[in-house]
Design a binder for these strands. Sequence first.
DNA 1: TTTGAAAATAGGAATGATTCTTATTTTAGA
DNA 2: TCTAAAATAAGAATCATTCCTATTTTCAAA
Lengths: 127, 127
Amino acid sequence: MEKYSKQREEIINLLSNTKSHPTAEEIYSILKENGSTASRGTVYRNLNQLIDKGTVIKISIQDGPDRFDYIKEKHNHIICLKCGKVFDYFYNLNENKLKKDALEQTGVEILDNTFTLNGICNDCKTE
Amino acid sequence: MEKYSKQREEIINLLSNTKSHPTAEEIYSILKENGSTASRGTVYRNLNQLIDKGTVIKISIQDGPDRFDYIKEKHNHIICLKCGKVFDYFYNLNENKLKKDALEQTGVEILDNTFTLNGICNDCKTE
DNA sequence: TTTGAAAATAGGAATGATTCTTATTTTAGA
DNA sequence: TCTAAAATAAGAATCATTCCTATTTTCAAA
């Protein structure tokens, strides 16, 4: 049975109030700055717990640590190839066709999809 | 200027003749078994070089090391959430609409996309 | 309200994938 | 044949993440 913890509340608050897709290390530092006692291990453990529950997702970045996002509404991500910044992006996929095609082609029962775009963001373009 | 190396040729041969999406470690072991002198460092260095050239792509797996795929024809991947196996999958996205939508929503100039599905494969279903 | 078991924590050690370093070898054009 | 650039092997170093252990917190039942 899950029990309340101050540290978990702090992590959820931070994540649900930012659009910055922070890394675990960034979450840890911000909490520290704000006087939290949370340790790195606690940050990772709670993130994984929230991922299992489905409230948070992990975004894998090619060169660099994973980033985390609190999910209010389902969406996709765009990652800048130059600076690594992550943007939220809404695109409507035909999920039923997708599932059907995948099942026919490979026999895999699809539960989820990760649709990530890569490109160069505005800030990096003008440099 | 790029120079020929036996080790790079071995890596390319292995990758272009398998459908198994091996990890760097698996590539290293298979080469070793077949009498190659290639070291881990050499495997990683060449994989990254091939990725830069666009002939190989890296597939990020949630829990486990990256996997590598030689690209003959553009396609997507399906990853089994239970056993981690990677399947090739062909799905036709409307890339122009995608690029236009993304640019409007975020200002990012899209160069590439990663479209990965997750599910339970046939073998894992019947267990 | 006390109490005790389950859950959570801090802090640091351990792990595992990947990159880096250095001295040596190979490649390929002049 | 010679030489500079590129590549290599082997292992050290790094970095993100998980694991470990002793301690603390939570919460339901007595």
